[in-house]
Amino acid sequence: MTRKYESNMPFARVLHAVMAIIFIASSAQAQSAPWKPDRAVTLVVPYAAGGGTDATARAVSRQLGVLWDQPVVVENLPGADGLIGTRRVMDAKPDGYTLLLQVPGIVLTKYTPGLKGIDPLARLEPVTAVSQSPAAIVASAKLPVKTLAEFVAYCKTSVQPCSLATGESLARILGRQLAAETGIPNLIVVNYRGTGPIVTDLIANNVNLSFTGITAALPHYRAGTLKILATQGKTRAAALPDVPTTAEAGFPQFQSVTWFGLFAPKGTPVAVTQGIVAALRDAVKDANVQKTIAAAGAEPVVNSPAEFAAQVRAESERLGALVKLYPLE
């Protein structure tokens, strides 16, 4: 019996060594594989359907669903300058299954009267930018103006005060800045719950002007029912090559680029956020996703959580300085 046991020892050692190698290789493979959800993911858009944030969310959610083999459901929760939908994600479990798509206006929440100084960024993890697009200065086609300078001149001499439609805090600040720095008297700022109603009233000339995303305005611009007086990027928008930038129009202080960024609840594991970024890098390569983003006048920009966090901080500093000059009311 003893001799038989001893004769099998080399084989037992080899088998043990092989099993150890298999275990180590399996563990390494499991660690290197990016995180993927095993059930439906909710992507919250804190604005009404039909705007640039919603269009971006729906473009990437479909492809993420394909890549993950799990549904990615877009949930529109507008209200309170985006805080209602944002709070939904702030209060969610930090496990990657409830995500938020937001825009730079999120950094202004803490300055908004009535919102009690709530700072969503203190309870969210920046994950990545998804795309970016210059905002546009959009006017009713019924106005007798062709340029931003002509609009300013028109408002200075019009018997009726000019009006500006806004759907979020940043546009309200830009409206006050426009009135103060160009000398437009008595500019009326009208608040809306979403981009869709703004576009409807712009077409009817119930309001005269708006700072808004390119997405909702583009088809109406092409149809001739809206005018886009300028775009706010450093260079002309690819979707609007004939429209000047604000700098080219003589108003460089109104330069602004809107990023559409993905956030997760604070405390979401690094492996989860990295898995989301990896999937998004693949998602934006899809031809249909690129087509949808391009149609919105945007371009895909997927960066790392650290890079996006730095981008959010820079925007917070820029807009924080602006809100000191033009406080929200």
Rank of each mutant, 00 (worst) to 15 (best):
A17D: 08
G65S: 15
T98E: 13
Q70R: 12
G51T: 05
G51C: 02
V107Q: 06
G114K: 11
G65D: 11
A25D: 00
A30S: 09
T112M: 10
S32F: 10
D69L: 12
Q29C: 06
P120Y: 10
Q70F: 05
R58D: 02
V89D: 01
V45W: 00
L67V: 13
P34E: 09
P78A: 01
G79D: 04
N8T: 12
G117C: 12
P120N: 13
P120A: 12
G52W: 01
Y47D: 11
L108S: 11
I106R: 09
D69V: 14
P34T: 12
I118G: 01
K116M: 12
F11W: 09
L43K: 09
A12P: 01
G82A: 00
G79L: 02
L15G: 02
A25V: 13
A59H: 07
L99N: 08
T109N: 08
G82K: 01
L15H: 00
T86D: 00
L83A: 02
I21H: 00
T86K: 01
D81H: 03
Q70T: 11
V73K: 06
V60S: 09
V44E: 06
G52L: 01
Q31E: 09
S61M: 04
W35A: 13
A40G: 10
F23T: 13
D81V: 02
S27W: 04
T56I: 14
P10E: 05
L101G: 07
T42W: 01
P104A: 15
R39P: 06
A48R: 04
M9H: 01
L108I: 12
P37Q: 07
R88K: 14
D81G: 03
W68A: 09
A20F: 04
F23N: 03
P113K: 10
I106D: 10
Q70A: 10
L99T: 11
R88P: 00
V74S: 03
A92I: 08
Q31Y: 12
L100K: 11
P94S: 13
R62N: 05
G51M: 07
L121S: 14
L43S: 08
V18I: 14
T53D: 12
G52I: 02
N8Y: 07
P71F: 04
T98M: 08
A17P: 04
R39N: 07
V14E: 01
A12C: 03
P78L: 00
M90N: 04
G85C: 00
T112A: 09
I118A: 13
M90W: 07
A48S: 15
Q63D: 05
L115N: 03
R88T: 04
V74I: 08
Y111C: 06
D91S: 12
